[in-house]
């Protein structure tokens, strides 16, 4: 693997430029993933920016502790969640937040940008209709289930990595994924039924 051999090289030779290069190759491709997770946690773009920057800087400082060949995205998300948890437990809850509407608008605008670069307009329209239902069903999930599902299905981490990121036992993650999907199916079913009833 190019990245891990680069990393080993950087450690051996140890020059600052090599280290920076290895970090950029290994960690920065996951910047969007980190930012997306930060946006979900912080719920407003300013805090998401700060959270992302703090995560990347801390990762850079402790880059020597990253095990080459393991999932760098999972490692970065673990750092991100740690920073977030620490801030949360400090009990600073007094800052004004964006309203849910602003937040939803933000997320939508962001994902629209991301969508458009990937898929054609027709697929975009189709996925928007389905996507709206999925978002609704996901939003209705208790947060712990939703986090687990997003880390598995969207961030594509394995259960062990999710357990590390969320600082929870592996068995807990297994049951959250399983129960989360069951709840999603139930919610989607009900959304379908409602649609049938009202004809929309």
């Amino acid at each position: 693997m190019l990245c891990s051999s680069l990393l080993r090289m950087a450690r051996k030779s140890g020059t600052a430029a090599d280290r920076r290069l290895a970090f950029e190759r290994e960690a920065l491709p996951h910047l969007d993933a980190v930012y997306s997770a930060a946006l979900r946690l912080a719920r407003n773009p300013d805090d998401a920016n700060d959270l992302t920057q703090e995560t990347i800087l801390r990762a850079y400082r402790f880059f020597d502790q990253f095990t080459a060949g393991t999932n760098c995205r999972a490692w970065l998300l673990t750092i991100l969640y740690n920073i977030f948890r620490n801030a949360w437990h400090r009990g600073e809850r007094e800052q004004p937040a964006s309203t849910p509407e602003e937040f939803a608008g933000e997320i939508e605008a962001q994902s629209r940008d991301a969508d458009q670069s990937r898929i054609n307009p027709e697929a975009l329209l189709l996925s928007r209709v389905a996507g709206r239902r999925i978002e609704l069903a996901l939003n209705a999930l208790p947060a712990e289930f939703r986090e687990a599902l997003i880390l598995v299905d969207v961030q594509e981490l394995n259960y062990q990595e999710v357990a590390t990121v969320l600082d929870a036992p592996l068995g807990t993650i297994k049951s959250r994924v399983s129960r989360g999907r069951a709840l999603m199916r139930k919610a989607l079913c009900r959304l379908d039924q409602a649609r049938g009833k009202t004809g929309t």
Partner: peptide
């Protein structure tokens, strides 16, 4: 698959990238 498709990753703003 549909969760993965509908919950697209947000793009980090260009301004944030240069800040980092």
């Amino acid at each position: 698959a549909i969760v993965r498709q509908s919950v697209a990753l947000a793009k980090a703003p260009a301004e944030l990238k240069s800040r980092i």
